[in-house]
Nucleic acid binder design. Structure first.
Lengths: 254, 254
DNA sequence: GCCGCTGTAA
DNA sequence: TTACAGCGGC
C-alpha cells in the first residue's frame, strides 16, 4: 500500500517534464525514506537520477519497498490534467496493476480521479558512489540553459573548461567557433545569481550539446544548477529540489 | 440591400473563430429580425446554429430575406485584418456576388475595404423545435473546455453523467481511465462561476471528445456554457452571446 | 515583461 | 509525432 499527498501538484509536473523527454518508461522506487528513480536514456548515453525525500510530501505512507513502473509520457499527461494549485493524492494498492491520481481543486468543488495502468519494467537501483570531482561549478540554471541552447546553434559539442577564476563554454564547428566565459562572482545580491567555482584541478572536457539541452529541461526545478567535472569521471549536472531532493544527470565526456 | 454596422469587430471575430473549424462553407440568412446560420460539419455528425439578433448591431438594415453564402475561413481571414477595437460595416447589394467589409480604426484614421466573393450554397433553415432535455448543466465555459481538453489526452470519448448533486465527465482508454466530478454550487460570489444543475431524470451519455473540443472553440463568446442532455435527444451545447444571440452545437450521443 | 498558443521544422 | 521558435494576449 502506497499513499502520497502533495499540496503542490506543480512540483511533480515539473519533475516529470524534466525527465520525460529523456526516458519513456521507468520504475519509481518507493521506500520508507522516499521516492527514487534511475534510468538511462534509450541510447544508453546518459543516466538520470531522481530523488524525492519523504519530507517532500504532506503525507508519505509506504508500507514496504515497492517499484512502480510507469510510462512517463502517460503519467505526465495525467498530471497535466490537474491545475498547478490542485492538491494531489497518489495511491497504489499491493497486487494491483494500476496507480490512482486524485486531484482536488483548491475549493474542492472539482475532484478528478485518474487511474493509470502500470508497466513491468526491468531495472535495478544502482548504488551510485559519491564521486570526487575536480571542479564543481554552481551557477544560475537559466544562464546555463541559455548557454547550452545558444552554443547548440553553432556546434554539436560543448567544451567546458574550468579554472579558479572562471568557467568557459566553447564550441567549434564549420561555420565558426564560440566561447562564453563566465567569471566567478560570489559577491552578488541574491545567492541564486552567484557563480561559484570549487576547484582542485583545472579541467577541460567535451560533451554532447544535444544531451545537455535535454538536461536543462529541469531548469524550472531550481534557480541554480551544479556541474561537477573530473577527467576520468562522468559529469554530473544537478538540479536541487528545495531541500527535498534532486534531479541529477550523469554523462561521460565525449 | 443589406447593411450592418457593428462597433465591436471582436464579437464577429469570435463568432467566426467558434465555427470556422467546424464548417468551411455556410449560408448566413438575414431577415428583419437578425442573422442566423445553420450548418452540419462535413461528416454530418454535429450541427451548429448561430443566431445574432438585429439588436446586436448598431445599424441593421435588411430590406428582404437574403442568404449570403461564404467560405468561413476566408471571411475569418478578412476579419482578422481588423483590430479588435475597429468598427465594422458590412454591405451586400442585391444581385451582386460579393460582400464588402469596411473596417474603421477607433480614430478613423485608417479605413480598410475588403471585398469577398460570395458562394452559392444549398442549405435550408431547419425549424429546430425546443427540445425537452432531462438534464441541463450550466457551468463556467473555461472549466468545461479544460475538462474536454484534459480528457482528450486520455481517451476519445467522454461519458457525461448528471445527478442532482453533480456532473461527472469520464473516459476510459488503454492507458487508464479518468473521471472528473464537478459538484453543483450555486452559492458562489460571481454568478458566472456557478455550476447549476436542473434535473428531471439522471442521464449518462457518451460523446465524441473530438467534437466537444471543436465546440469549445466558442468559449471566448461567453463565461458560461449550458449543456442539455436527454437519452433520446441530441445534446445541445450552448454559448449565449450577451442577450444578443447564441451559438449552439447539437450532437447525438455515440 | 511574462506566459500561453500556434505554426513550422526535424 | 515531437520539439523549437516566433507572435499575440494578459
Amino acid at each position: 500500500m502506497l499513499e502520497l499527498h502533495l499540496v503542490q501538484n506543480s512540483l511533480l509536473k515539473k519533475v516529470l517534464e524534466s525527465i520525460k523527454d529523456f526516458v519513456t518508461d521507468a520504475n519509481f522506487h518507493y521506500s520508507a525514506t522516499g521516492c527514487s528513480l534511475q534510468a538511462m536514456d534509450s541510447s544508453h548515453v546518459a543516466l538520470v537520477v531522481l530523488l524525492l525525500r519523504a519530507e517532500a510530501f504532506e503525507l508519505y505512507r509506504c508500507d514496504r519497498n515497492i517499484s512502480v513502473g510507469m510510462n512517463l509520457n502517460n503519467m505526465s499527461k495525467m498530471l497535466e490534467c490537474a491545475g498547478n494549485d490542485d492538491a494531489i493524492r497518489i495511491k497504489a494498492d499491493d497486487g494491483n496493476d494500476t496507480i490512482t491520481f486524485v486531484f482536488e481543486s483548491p475549493t474542492q468543488r472539482k475532484v478528478s480521479n485518474f487511474e493509470m495502468r502500470l508497466m513491468d519494467i526491468d531495472s535495478e537501483l544502482l548504488g551510485i558512489p559519491d564521486l570526487e570531482h575536480h571542479a564543481i561549478v554552481k551557477m544560475p540554471s537559466v544562464e546555463f540553459a541559455r548557454i547550452c541552447k545558444d552554443l547548440s546553434n553553432i556546434g554539436d559539442t560543448v567544451i567546458i573548461s574550468v579554472t579558479r577564476e572562471d568557467v568557459t563554454f566553447s564550441t567549434i564547428d564549420d561555420i565558426g567557433s564560440a566561447n562564453i566565459v563566465c567569471s566567478q562572482n560570489a559577491a552578488v545580491a541574491k545567492p541564486e545569481e552567484a557563480t561559484v567555482i570549487e576547484l582542485n584541478e583545472p579541467v577541460s572536457l567535451t560533451f554532447s550539446l544535444r544531451y545537455m539541452n535535454l538536461f536543462t529541461k529541469a531548469t524550472p526545478l531550481s534557480n541554480t544548477v551544479t556541474i561537477s567535472l573530473a577527467s576520468e569521471l562522468p559529469a554530473v549536472v544537478e538540479y536541487k529540489i528545495a531541500e527535498m531532493g534532486h534531479v541529477r544527470f550523469y554523462m561521460d565526456p565525449s
